[in-house]
Design a protein around this nucleic acid. Structure first.
Lengths: 239, 239
DNA sequence: TCAGCTAGCTTACGTCGTAAGCCTTGATCA
DNA sequence: TGATCAAGGCTTACGACGTAAGCTAGCTGA
């Protein structure tokens, strides 16, 4: 009506032939968050991106909140579908954990604006811990450990220690990456780092080192240390 | 006008004699978040709680976002003002780190709805890492370590490892505590844990253990392990 | 006394999530 | 073929939100 029937465009835009579905909505939401951060995901904006009115999205999604849950589910399903993140015949338990850890890290770095959601939105049950926050994941993880000699206590302990490790390291790595883990994003880096450091001599002196990015090495080293600890737990039990 | 001049209350509510100030606004915001979660902090609601119109808050605060930054600053200042979290004459470096860790944990558990903000809002600079996310904190932390024999590299390394450790453990502990780290809070725990576990035998079997809360012990043990690792770094350097 | 400032209030705008209901189109079936 | 119907769009509308702009009452100090 307004200006859409520009005669020069017989079928200018894709002119949706096939109807939208939930998967497309979720995918578009992920793209939008990847590009502009979670605060930019509004139903109207998402509709615009899909050439659809905001209200039409509700044919495919119950609410914005469940859409966000869908985004998270999609991301961790993507991770779950990565064969690298599953136990192999030839694996030792530590090979397995290393591959899972690296898979999660890849996943987090691929979607730095989504990861804070994965980290902080309430999980389905309080004992399901981000970032391994789906039942399939918990099941797969526990099973893999138990088939490699972890008893019940050690497996659960490992689940908790491993998720804590992942969350701490990756949330900070992703945040340092400039992800707008919070509301506002880029434009207010008013001065590239116009902090008054005069009263903080140690910070001032160490700032070059503080800004160095050694995330990958530190992740691996900390992981290695965790694995050593878990080996004790596995063979000697808790305490 | 509406119903506020109930004659039975000559001065029913405090009837503000002294004007509001920024500190009171921040304090009220913290209370509101503590009670109802961050999603419940709107300028209008906050105004209501302070018997003031929403717009009046802008006399004391630049925007909702800077108010949130103020909330975070207040929380970590509270932590900084706790003498338990600072180096003592009699301390070894590990005594110090243990007390800081426990201080942060106390702080997080005292404000479980605020901690996710502390964890995920963008810090002033990318190398300032939650939850020790103020310049005074970084300075104090680095100085304390260096006065105990950490060289520059080891001190910075420790800052990073320590913050990762705190963030991972405490964010998950606070989340399990039922904090609404995300938008919605309590009412939709429709069924106390109505998850279909039929297809997840390991989860099903281990669920009692998964729901056990051993956060305190695990925090301490993981901390102890971290300290051992740091001891190596302190005495032998990195790598 | 009176100018000026402070800390409130009022109004208004644009955006948000979403409830309710309408319209078009293509498939189903008599 | 024509009637029926559901799916998947669209329109309108409501209340809450953040906040820009401007108003005003009452205190301060000259």
């Amino acid at each position: 009506m307004t200006k859409s029937d520009d005669p020069s465009s017989l079928r200018a835009e894709p002119e949706r032939r096939t109807p939208l579905d939930r998967a497309q909505v979720v995918r578009a939401a992920i793209e939008l968050i990847d590009e502009h951060g979670a605060h930019a995901l509004s139903m109207r904006r998402l509709g615009r991106r899909l050439n659809v009115e905001a209200m039409s999205l509700y044919k495919h999604v119950d609410s914005r909140d469940t859409l966000l849950d869908g985004v998270i589910a999609a991301i961790i399903d993507e991770l779950f579908d990565d064969p690298e993140t599953h136990l192999r015949e030839t694996d030792s338990w530590s090979d397995y954990l290393v591959r899972v850890a690296h898979g999660v890290r890849r996943n987090a770095l691929a979607h730095p604006n989504v990861f804070p959601l994965v980290a902080t939105r309430p999980p389905e049950a309080p004992w399901i811990r981000p970032p391994l926050r789906s039942l399939p994941w918990v099941e797969s993880f526990l099973l893999s450990l138990r088939t490699h000699g972890f008893d019940a206590d050690a497996a659960v302990y490992t689940y908790r220690a491993f998720t804590s490790f992942l969350l701490g390291h990756l949330l900070l790595e992703v945040a340092a990456l400039g992800a707008d883990t919070g509301p506002i994003a880029s434009p207010e880096s008013t001065h590239p780092s116009g902090l008054r450091l005069d009263d903080y001599p140690n910070v001032q002196e160490l700032r070059p080192k503080l800004t160095e990015n050694a995330a990958a090495e530190e992740f691996d080293e900390s992981l290695d240390n965790l694995l050593n600890r878990l080996q004790d737990v596995r063979t000697h039990g808790l305490l």
